[in-house]
Amino acid sequence: MTLSFDKPVRAVVTGAGGGLGRAFCLELARRNARIVAADIDLAGVEETVAMVEKLGCKAYARACDVAQRPAVAELAEAATSLLGGVDLLINNAGVATSGPVDAIPQQDWEWIMGVNLWGVIYGCELFVPQMRAQGRGHVINVASAAGLLCTPMMAPYNVTKAGVIALSETMAAELAPAGIGVTVLCPTFFRTRIIDAGRHHGEDNRASRVGKLMDRATLQAPEVARFALDAAAAGTLYALPHADGAWLWRLKRLAPERFYQKLMPRWFGKFTQR
């Protein structure tokens, strides 16, 4: 089942207070969607809704902490009431933490698991039954190339995003007979607030270097959102918008042991020296 924008799509976007979530909402508005935009930052998501409505589309703002199942259940109920059903769920909310595995405290593991993994699980658990009942729908789970490549010093982030990829692959097989499509988005670097709002341990200038890579990216949030929606409309499972991520994933699949024993340490060493 592919997602069609031939008629207005009823969409729910989490993490919509800025960054990629806001870009998703604006691109959906250009495609004449009706949107429930959710974020733990209510002021940010209200700003997103105002931007969407300037484009002539209807949107609703909702505060939601996706790490809390009751909050996601309330969001699902509100979306059904406001939109009359949901055709597209975009599980986008995410946070970041970085540092050596042995330097990251347990509370930061629990924090990132709650948002990045449990938030996606709750969204799928609570929205997919509605899609089954109506016999159609699509889920876009926002993961990361980090979930495919497992870059050093990002263990919690890698673990959560790899989990999102595994969940998406499982759902794609399970839900195809029900007419429900799944796309997992795996970008590399582009400018968002995720690094600035993250919890970082160990080397104190790694975040600034990542920020420079984000700024230099040729595809930024608007292009990534457009790429993901086009992938969903084409029925694509894996959406890798950035060429560097796609090529590194190919290299890993060709020679996984060499990739982690030789290529990744060499690349990461050069990155940390720059």
Rank of each mutant, 00 (worst) to 15 (best):
L237Q: 04
T192Q: 14
R199D: 04
G179I: 08
E223R: 05
D204C: 01
D244I: 15
A217Q: 07
F190S: 13
E223F: 03
L229W: 08
H242R: 08
Q220C: 06
A221L: 08
L219E: 11
G235D: 00
A228R: 07
C186H: 08
I195C: 00
P222A: 06
D230N: 14
E223Q: 14
T192K: 10
L240C: 03
A197T: 03
Q220N: 10
T218C: 04
I195R: 00
D215S: 09
H242K: 10
M214F: 13
P222F: 05
F190P: 09
S208P: 02
F190K: 11
L229V: 10
Q220R: 05
F189V: 08
R206F: 14
F227A: 12
T236V: 14
M214D: 05
A225M: 11
T188G: 11
G211W: 02
L185H: 14
G235V: 09
V184E: 11
D196S: 01
C186N: 14
P187Y: 08
T236Q: 15
I195K: 00
L240V: 03
D215M: 09
L237F: 15
G181N: 08
P187N: 12
I194D: 05
R226C: 06
G181R: 01
A217W: 02
D196C: 00
A217I: 03
H201I: 04
L229N: 13
A228F: 10
D230T: 14
G181T: 04
T183M: 13
E223C: 03
V224C: 11
R193Y: 00
T188C: 13
A221R: 06
R199S: 10
R216C: 00
